[in-house]
Amino acid sequence: MKIKLTKSMLKSYIDEFIEDEVMDEKASSTYNKYRKVVSDFVDFFDKEDVAKSDLISYKKKIVENFSTKTVNNYIIIINKFVKYVELNKKGEYNSTKAKTYVSDYRLKVIKEQEKTSIENVIKPEEFKRMLSKAKKTGNMETYMIMKIFGYTGIRVSELKYYTVENIKESKSKKYVTVFNKGKERSVPMRGDLRRELLAYAKDKKIESGTLFPSEKKNDGSMITERTVERRILKICGMCRGIDLAKAHPHSFRHMFSIQFLKAGGNSTELARILGHSDIKTTEIYANTSVEEKKKNVERIKY
């Protein structure tokens, strides 16, 4: 039975679809993104009946306004949402069926040239300058956050697992357990970083819970990811000569990955630390940047 989509039908399933994503234990930032993408998708249609051609028109619109990577992320979310609606209307929805079901409304992702290296990554010397600036200006919370990112390679959404309890346990366990997309992994903890984090907690009189509590909420919850990003950007802005495009948490993750491999680690070990399910995602860090390739070419002598 083929389901004919309508705007009102799609709209009626948005909340249910998002709730299903919440139950799948996705990060709050992820399902908030899903809600925005799906809501914008439904609002795009100016008539009740929705045909495949209308979805293609939507795709053309986002292609004109976003990068290929963002467009493909949107398409993946939209395809997932449309499958959810169709299967529920048929009374056949379950997670197994959703993985194999192919919708007639399915949009194709855009082929993107595979990246061979990571560009615009913060350099170790820039990292040191930002740490120094944060310390000198009394921004110790941002200093400690940047240190965690730079020496662990975690995602900003995983910072919440760096609690006083978990830091203390890492003395015997040698790692901190984090969760992402329902998957558990162990991130090695350096002894010097552990000691510095515990000294920071003692100085701030933080005896339990997150090391970085929100002063606004005053309920023990951690500062928001957006606050973390803004504070890192602020410190970068104080450091003359460092490109602001590098001032984001993921840049520290890239830097950590590159330095881990340079220090003798291998891609398999790094994939486990970073939580990559596909080794190809990790191997990109083994490739030199365009700038490094240029330097290598210039070293050739005949």
Rank of each mutant, 00 (worst) to 15 (best):
I3N: 08
L10V: 04
K11D: 13
S12N: 10
S12A: 08
S12E: 01
I14S: 00
E19K: 14
D20T: 15
E21M: 07
E21Y: 10
A27R: 11
S28K: 09
T30A: 00
Y31L: 14
N32S: 14
Y34N: 06
Y34Q: 07
V37Q: 12
F41A: 02
K47M: 02
E48A: 01
D49G: 05
V50A: 10
I56K: 11
V63C: 13
N65T: 08
K69E: 15
I75R: 13
I76A: 13
I77N: 03
F81T: 07
Y84A: 00
E86G: 07
E86D: 05
N88M: 09
K89W: 01
V102F: 00
D104R: 14
L107F: 10
I110M: 14
K111N: 14
Q113C: 14
Q113F: 11
S117N: 15
I118G: 01
I122S: 05
K123D: 03
E125P: 08
F127R: 12
K128L: 09
K128Q: 08
L131K: 03
S132K: 10
G138D: 00
M140G: 01
E141L: 12
M146I: 00
K147E: 04
F149I: 04
T152N: 02
V164S: 15
I167R: 06
E169S: 10
V176S: 01
V178Y: 02
V178C: 06
F179K: 15
F179Q: 04
K181F: 06
V187H: 06
P188M: 14
R190A: 09
G191R: 04
R194D: 07
R195D: 12
E196A: 11
D203A: 13
D203N: 15
E207P: 09
S208L: 02
S208K: 14
L211T: 05
M222A: 15
M222V: 11
I223G: 09
I223Y: 01
E225A: 06
R226I: 12
R231F: 13
R231P: 04
R231D: 01
L233T: 03
I235L: 00
G237L: 02
M238C: 09
M238N: 11
R240Q: 08
I242L: 12
I242A: 08
P249F: 12
P249R: 03
P249E: 03
P249L: 09
H250N: 10
F252C: 12
M255E: 03
F256L: 07
Q259I: 03
A271R: 08
L274K: 06
L274M: 03
L274N: 02
L274I: 06
H276T: 09
T282R: 10
E283V: 02
A286Y: 05
V290S: 13
V297P: 01
V297K: 11
K301C: 13
Y302A: 08
